[in-house]
Design a protein around this nucleic acid. Structure first.
Ligand code: ZN
Ligand code: ZN
Ligand code: ZN
Ligand code: ZN
Lengths: 137, 137
DNA sequence: CTATTATTGATATGAATTATCAATATATGA
DNA sequence: TCATATATTGATAATTCATATCAATAATAG
């Protein structure tokens, strides 16, 4: 009885694209599916990405100021965003200890989690930039 | 000569409201100014908040999924957001060590900074919730 | 004072996401 | 197998937050 989720083809397609991509946006998932399945609606993609991330099958990476990314890797890790090209890469092996507990004691909040995003310049863009400054001399 | 910023009354008003508020949104700053100075434009508030935070006079707190907050406290500290009521409070005294350097070594990025937001339930909302569950018995 | 131009108010535009709703398709179970 | 209940869909409107545009205005240096 318990109002179960249904296994629609659209849901499977969304899941597949996320599983075969690195940190895609909803837009990317939509366009990718659309080549093989042109009838898919953007709203459906958003709805399924929400459902799948709420369910814990995928991870939602909210980025302030730009479109959310989604992640097939649901293990604990963080992300770095390139301010030049928008690339996003994993930051693994970062141990922050019990910052949630620390924050809880500090504020009186019941902390359920945290969002941590690093901002910087990716190796590729660093290379481009140092090329440019050589040119300008 | 050097194209200087001008000290407009609008800019001073925006600065004043931020200095006298706790983590206001652009909308809040706008409405507050509007009571005494009805001609102010929302665009002007956004423009000045950007200028002031770029200049380092105030701090911009980007929140994924909701409106940015601004902070008169420009010292290093973090924030906790209540998922129930939207309240935002300071998290002081959190030592994360050299996470930027760690992230840099991990990814090859040149890290310029990071955004860290805690999510949870504020003390007030915790109280409301435990009241409710008492009622429901 | 005068000239330069940074800034303003008004408004349009944009990006990302959610809401609405009738039509459709999936799962359950008779 | 078939009928039923309803979760989900596609299409589209609406929302939210923020930036872009541009002629008019006002702040500052000289
Ligand atoms: Zn880059
Ligand atoms: Zn990742
Ligand atoms: Zn609260
Ligand atoms: Zn603060």
């Amino acid at each position: 009885m318990a109002a179960a989720n249904r296994n629609t083809i659209q849901r499977k397609l969304v899941m597949n694209v996320v599983q075969n991509s690195l940190h895609p946006t909803a837009e990317y998932v939509y366009k990718t599916i659309k080549t093989d399945y042109p009838d898919i609606s953007l709203g459906t993609v958003y709805r399924n990405l929400s459902l799948l991330s709420n369910r814990g099958d995928i991870l939602k990476i909210p980025l302030p100021g730009s479109a959310d990314r989604f992640d097939r890797d649901i293990s604990l890790h963080y992300h770095a965003v390139c301010s030049e090209c928008g690339a996003i890469d994993d930051v693994h092996g970062l141990d922050l200890g019990d910052i949630d507990m620390d924050a809880s004691q500090n504020t009186g909040y019941t902390i359920s989690g945290h969002t941590l995003i690093f901002t910087g310049i990716c190796p590729e863009c660093q290379a481009k930039i140092s090329e440019q400054s050589l040119m300008e001399e």
